[in-house]
Deep mutational scan, measured.
Amino acid sequence: VKVFRALYTFEPRTPDELYFEEGDIIYITDMSDTNWWKGTSKGRTGLIPSNYVAEQ
Rank of each mutant, 00 (worst) to 15 (best):
V1Q: 11
V1H: 12
K2F: 11
K2W: 14
K2H: 11
K2G: 09
V3N: 04
V3Y: 09
V3T: 11
F4W: 09
F4P: 00
F4L: 04
R5K: 14
R5L: 13
A6P: 02
A6L: 03
A6C: 05
A6E: 01
L7S: 04
L7T: 05
L7N: 04
Y8D: 04
T9I: 05
F10K: 05
F10E: 00
F10V: 07
E11D: 10
P12F: 06
P12R: 05
R13C: 11
T14Q: 11
T14C: 13
T14F: 10
P15R: 10
P15S: 12
P15A: 12
D16P: 04
D16Y: 13
E17W: 06
E17T: 04
L18R: 00
L18C: 02
L18K: 01
Y19P: 13
Y19T: 05
E21W: 04
E22P: 06
G23A: 03
G23Y: 04
D24H: 02
D24Q: 06
I26S: 00
I26N: 00
I26D: 00
Y27S: 06
Y27Q: 07
Y27M: 10
Y27H: 08
I28T: 00
I28Q: 01
I28V: 14
I28M: 08
D30I: 04
M31N: 07
M31E: 04
M31P: 03
S32E: 09
S32W: 06
S32L: 09
S32C: 08
D33F: 03
D33R: 06
T34L: 14
N35R: 13
N35D: 13
N35L: 15
N35S: 11
N35E: 13
W36H: 03
W36D: 01
W36S: 02
W36C: 07
W37H: 02
W37E: 00
W37D: 01
W37P: 01
W37V: 02
K38A: 08
K38T: 14
K38D: 02
K38F: 15
K38H: 13
G39T: 02
G39S: 01
G39N: 02
G39E: 02
T40D: 06
S41Y: 10
S41H: 12
S41R: 15
K42H: 12
K42P: 02
K42S: 12
K42D: 13
G43K: 04
G43L: 03
G43N: 08
G43S: 05
G43P: 01
R44C: 09
R44W: 06
R44N: 10
T45D: 08
T45K: 08
T45G: 07
G46V: 01
G46E: 01
G46C: 04
G46L: 02
L47D: 02
L47W: 14
I48K: 01
I48Y: 01
P49H: 06
P49S: 05
P49G: 04
P49C: 08
P49T: 05
S50Q: 06
S50I: 06
N51L: 09
N51F: 10
N51E: 11
Y52A: 14
Y52V: 07
Y52P: 01
Y52H: 07
V53G: 03
V53R: 00
V53H: 02
V53W: 02
A54S: 13
A54D: 08
A54L: 12
A54T: 14
E55C: 08
E55F: 13
Q56G: 13
Q56R: 09
Q56N: 11
Q56S: 14
Q56W: 15
